[in-house]
Amino acid sequence: MPIYSESFAAAFHLLASSDNDLMEILALSLNVSLASLALSCLIGLPLGAILAIRQFPMRDFLVGVFNAMMGLPPVVVGLLVYLHLSRSGPFGWLGLLYTPEAMVIAQMILITPIIVALSCQVLEDLHEDYKDFFDSLVVPRRTALLAYIIDARYSLLTVILAGFGRAVSEVGAVIIVGGNIDHLTRVMTTAIALETSKGELALALALGFILLAISLAVNFLVQWLKASAKRRAYV
């Protein structure tokens, strides 16, 4: 299909000329995704760790809820966030609708369950391995929690990567709460949706290639980190 070569050329041209609009959109994409990822990790990693190592009545139910929430459709999240942030909604007074913050909130809701559920799984395995030793040593719970996160850091990196992947590639939620406003809330995915709707399929695909390139770059970086960790063999 000739559209591939056309799109590759367009993608290359956009990048080579470091097109201003593209750079702005790219920067916002990364900013929004990284901010939501950072906030999700601040909430999700400790929560995942607590679910992994503590037993309490609602624990299994909560794990089930977070597992289910990994599959939340982005449009539903977008709609819920829209309804809450709308001027006529309960948080309308914050004036956040159609801002990057609204997009961060929506993406946080999307990726926090991923961070919680996957980190819980990773840390549960480690806990199974460490718990008798830590119990025997009388390690305080807080120290144990930290040790789990430190010793599982390379597995957790993969978890975080999964969250980033979801955030940066998601369009359904951010287009509703961000509004795809030029120079304000337009990100890579909403730009792709826009170009597709304008019938500029080659340009849309070119943007898709660029998004893919970013994903590949981030993944290779993590692969490399893990490989060097293996060389030092913190396995």
Binding site: N31, L34, A35, L37, A38, L39, L42, P100, V104
Partner: peptide, 10 residues
Amino acid sequence: LGLIAISTIF
């Protein structure tokens, strides 16, 4: 990283 990202957003 989170703080940087948040402050950029704001």
